[in-house]
Simulated assay, not measured.
Amino acid sequence: MKRRERTRQLIELGGLVAKAGLIELTDDDRAVILGLLVEAAAKLRTDETGNQLTLWRRRGQRAFADTIDKD
């Protein structure tokens, strides 16, 4: 991956963390945010990966739709 593409990806992922409200909800505690992400990754390593991805995808799609509706 080229440097510019990686930078864009990291900025977009940071935007998702902000959009989810994690910065405010954790008082910008990066250890907590990382812990949340590590916990999510651990869930994805279980037998329930497909179900978990489906659940999170639906929630994410609703969150995106809510953002569009508010604009």
Rank of each mutant, 00 (worst) to 15 (best):
R3Q: 08
D66V: 02
L13D: 11
Q61M: 13
R8H: 12
I23S: 01
T67A: 15
L10A: 13
K43T: 08
I68Q: 11
Q61C: 06
D28T: 06
N51H: 04
Q52I: 11
Q61V: 12
G35I: 04
A20L: 14
R62C: 05
L44H: 05
G21Y: 05
G35C: 08
T46W: 01
Q9H: 10
R58V: 02
R4I: 08
A41N: 15
D69W: 07
L44E: 10
A18G: 03
D47C: 01
L36V: 05
Q9N: 10
E5V: 08
Q61G: 00
T54F: 08
L13F: 11
K19Q: 15
I11R: 15
A20W: 03
E48D: 15
I33K: 01
D27G: 08
L22I: 01
E12C: 09
A63D: 06
L53M: 14
R62T: 05
R4H: 08
A40E: 13
L13I: 06
E5Y: 02
L44I: 07
I68G: 03
A63R: 06
L13V: 06
I33V: 14
A40S: 12
W56P: 01
T67P: 00
F64Q: 13
D29Y: 04
E24G: 05
T7I: 13
D66F: 07
W56K: 09
L37P: 00
G35M: 07
A20G: 03
L44V: 06
G50A: 11
L36Q: 05
K70E: 15
D27A: 14
G14T: 03
A40N: 12
F64S: 10
R45Y: 04
Q9S: 12
E39D: 14
K2E: 08
K70I: 10
L55Q: 12
L13T: 05
F64H: 10
G15Y: 02
D28F: 10
K2A: 06
A41P: 02
G21T: 05
A63Q: 09
D28M: 09
T26E: 04
A31V: 08
V17S: 03
I23C: 02
A63Y: 00
N51K: 08
R4T: 10
R62E: 13
A42W: 07
Q9M: 14
